[in-house]
Design a protein around this nucleic acid. Structure first.
Lengths: 218, 218
DNA sequence: TTACTGTTGATATAAATTTAGCAAATTTAA
DNA sequence: TTAAATTTGCTAAATTTATATCAACAGTAA
């Protein structure tokens, strides 16, 4: 395996796609062996890209044959770290928080929201999908007792930095941030921004341009 | 301006960040002029990158001075197409659907969910943030009457392709897909996959590796 | 005025990422 | 057994993207 430092970020974002696809083939489609061409075909990724991505981590296939689906799934799962569960605390019991707690496709990716926290007395004590919303004031105790490393921020923009600071104080090591703002964190803390507005705007950008072209054409 | 075709995708994803930042400066912070260094500083983006991104679309600054905040905001807004509203239909009145309808930060990005649809009789007729959930059967009529171009898929994975097909039949031109699956669509239809699991897995990947390093070190 | 500082936008350079080409390995069929 | 068809994984080439450099321009202070 090459130095983990210089593996393309894009590769790391394709691995979960491979993983999910392999899981589907393994669990539901009863497929034993797959070629890079077939796997890529399902995901609109060139076969050369698939092979290159995997080759960063080792040799998983057999020449002239392809990849064993179950084996490759396990290998990719281990590379990604999803061969175990990673419990998280979620701060923000609003609409988005509800949606995340109830999201079905996380557990197969090793992700599970174990605790839900909020600072709103009206929300504290409510049940969300079997979990009681707890007071953010107890974050230190909760993180210490559960040894949770992952935090999810689903609060309004204004509150995001404060929540991030509290998370880091409590011992959280990585933050998944849904608030549309950049968080200031120490360098050892990993942050992943999930900025929903960016997604929709890139779609609007293309749509807007398409429409402009059509108008000119007429 | 250069050919719009070969502008980096990453540039297009940074433009909304600039836009939001400029809007904040313009509306709340009363800042008139900003340099690429300052703008980039707020977003952890090098000033050279900021200037390069903007230079794809024209010359917006003054040498020795910087950029006029209000003007640049308007220019970037126009480039992105967010200088007008883009209404969308949302299919899927579940938890995620609720969260999207109630999401606050969309309107400043030109995005608005105008209609909510579902196929579940238990949900049809319910109100979500002032909008009545309508029967998916009426999608053709709704899209034709409203001339909506954007569709959002927030249904379970199994139903996503069917919904996409219905959307395309009804006249939808661009799809924002939250289901963790690749949609098969004609080439003229724009699709943006918002795959939440990919985001969290890339965080788990780093966390998992970090932990492995620590274990070795001890 | 003149020097000095700051800033853009263009061009050049470097780095990162993707794609192509091919030898080696495997299977299948003649 | 031999030839043909697949398919991997390595290396090289091409492409894309990011970063550095610098002349031209604008403001400021001596």
């Amino acid at each position: 395996m090459k130095n983990r430092e210089n593996i393309p970020k894009a590769t790391i974002e394709r691995l979960p796609l491979y993983y999910r696809c392999l899981d589907k083939m393994d669990t539901f489609e009863d497929i034993d062996v797959v070629s890079s061409k077939d796997l890529g075909g399902k995901l609109d990724i060139p076969s050369t890209q698939v092979r290159k991505d995997l080759s960063y981590y080792g040799e998983f296939g057999r020449r002239g044959v392809g990849y064993n689906v179950n084996e490759l799934k396990k290998s990719v799962g281990k590379i990604l770290g999803v061969d175990r569960m990673w419990p998280a605390i979620l701060v923000g019991a609003g609409n988005l928080g509800h949606a995340l707690v109830n999201y079905k496709s996380f557990s197969m990716m090793g992700f599970e929201i174990a605790c839900v926290l909020d600072n709103d007395p009206a929300k504290i004590g409510n049940m969300i999908n079997g979990k009681k919303v707890q007071d953010i004031k107890n974050i230190d105790k909760i993180v210490a007792e559960t040894d949770i490393k992952l935090g999810v921020i689903a609060v309004p923009t204004d509150a995001a930095q404060v929540v991030a600071d509290e998370m880091i104080d409590s011992g959280i090591k990585a933050i998944w941030n849904f608030a549309p703002t950049r968080l200031r964190v120490p360098p050892e803390i990993e942050v992943k921004n999930e900025d929903l507005a960016v997604g929709i705007v890139s779609l609007i950008y293309h749509l807007s341009w398409q429409e402009e072209m059509e108008t000119k054409g007429e």
